[in-house]
Computed example of a mutant assay.
Amino acid sequence: MTLNIGWIGCGRHASQMLMPQLAKNDLHIAAVCDVNEKAAAKAAWHFGADAVYGDFLELINHKGLDAIGMAVGPEVHHAATLAALAKGLPVFIEKPPAKDLANTQAIADAADKAQKSVIIGFQKRYATGNRIARNILKSEAFGPIMGLTGYYMNEPAYFAGKADYSSFYLHHCVHYMDLLPWLAGSPFADLSVRVNVSEPGHILVHLGFECENGSIGSVAMGTMQSRGTPTESMTIMGDHKRLEIQNIIHVKYFRHPPFKADDREATLEPGVDTLCWEPNFTAAANEDHKGYAALIADVAAAFKGEASAAPQIHEGVAAMASLEQMTALVGQEFKKQKK
């Protein structure tokens, strides 16, 4: 079954990472919209759209649409999603869903009223390494998740002008407000922060947390590393087991092997020795290590009324609530440091 989708926002991220996945899942881009006329026209030509708009309200009123997708800014996400829901259309929105928790909750309320899906682009769940880890963590063999530690870094590209950290929080940190509870299998119960700033725009936030299931952890997020180096790592502890996910493409699963140095008959035992995975980048097949293809596949399934694990707007509400709690704590730390 092919559905007609209207797409809002034709920038580099949308046109390179998201829109190419739509046709693979029988989602035909019938109309596109962008305030940049050249970007919209290029996307229409590239993806075979029949109509081009500069106003998202005009696109939403395009005849024959079955759903709306968008990757723009949080203010437009909020306004355009409400407009689409008012027309009875399900929606996919990139993260963040809105500029704050209140507007995200407004979207959730409108989605409930319209009885339509609003799906959030929490793509970190779909990165292959993270999905492998999550499936192992859900198994009885791993047992209770004791702790999670890691880092998720960026560079100060958000701060070409004034060091306004809101973009860093909304576009970067929000990913881990969703990913950490998803990996732990439990919502946050408590958060704490420590902050270090070397110069305006160069921030390091250490987030400590406890989840409702008793898992504890810490993660460092900041703008102090080059994007030209690996900027993401996660270690998840169980009892005599641990998972390590490096750069989202290297997964190691450590169990409880015996020492082998003095055992002349030592070998590798499938049940206890370390398992490793990394993608084959030389293969012609799409390894989808970032997870965009898998995300859009679930979006398409949800739009078609099929079984789907796509993250819904209420999960976006939870992530934004955690993000606002974290940013409030960061603000308190800044005040302490100024005294």
Rank of each mutant, 00 (worst) to 15 (best):
T231I: 13
A293P: 06
E324G: 04
P20S: 12
D178L: 00
P90E: 10
E140Q: 12
C10A: 15
Q325V: 04
A23S: 15
A79P: 03
Y158H: 14
G150N: 03
E278T: 13
M221F: 07
F281D: 13
V317M: 04
C33N: 08
D288V: 02
L323I: 08
M17T: 12
G88S: 13
E287F: 05
E244P: 01
A49D: 11
V193C: 13
A44P: 09
I248Q: 04
D263G: 03
M146G: 03
R125Y: 01
L329V: 12
G129F: 00
A266D: 09
E75M: 05
A111V: 04
A51D: 09
S198P: 11
T327P: 06
K124V: 04
D50C: 13
I93F: 01
A302S: 15
S15W: 02
I132D: 04
N196E: 14
I8Q: 01
P270R: 07
L179K: 04
P156E: 06
P279R: 06
A294D: 12
K24C: 04
D262K: 11
G201K: 00
G222C: 06
A301E: 08
V197N: 12
V91F: 00
P311A: 05
V52L: 02
S308I: 04
H289L: 03
A266C: 12
A189L: 14
S139Q: 13
K241G: 03
G143F: 05
A80M: 10
T327W: 01
V91K: 01
H77Y: 05
F188W: 07
F209L: 09
L243C: 10
K162S: 15
K304C: 08
A102W: 03
G238I: 02
E333H: 08
K95H: 13
P156C: 10
E278N: 14
A297P: 11
D164A: 08
Q123W: 01
T128I: 08
D288E: 03
L207Q: 02
M224P: 01
D34M: 00
A318E: 13
K335V: 10
F188L: 14
L101V: 07
D273H: 14
A163M: 08
Y165V: 14
A220H: 08
A114Q: 05
P270Q: 10
R125F: 00
E210Q: 13
N36E: 11
I93C: 15
A283N: 14
A110S: 11
I236V: 15
I216L: 02
I203R: 00
G316L: 01
A310V: 07
V193P: 08
P279M: 00
L65T: 06
G48A: 10
E265F: 07
V195C: 07
Q337G: 02
D55E: 14
D109S: 10
E210P: 06
A309S: 09
N103C: 08
S139A: 11
D273C: 07
A98H: 05
Q337M: 12
A285G: 05
L65A: 09
D100Y: 05
M17K: 08
G150Y: 02
C10Q: 11
L275G: 14
E212V: 12
G143W: 02
A310I: 02
P230W: 05
K339T: 12
P20C: 09
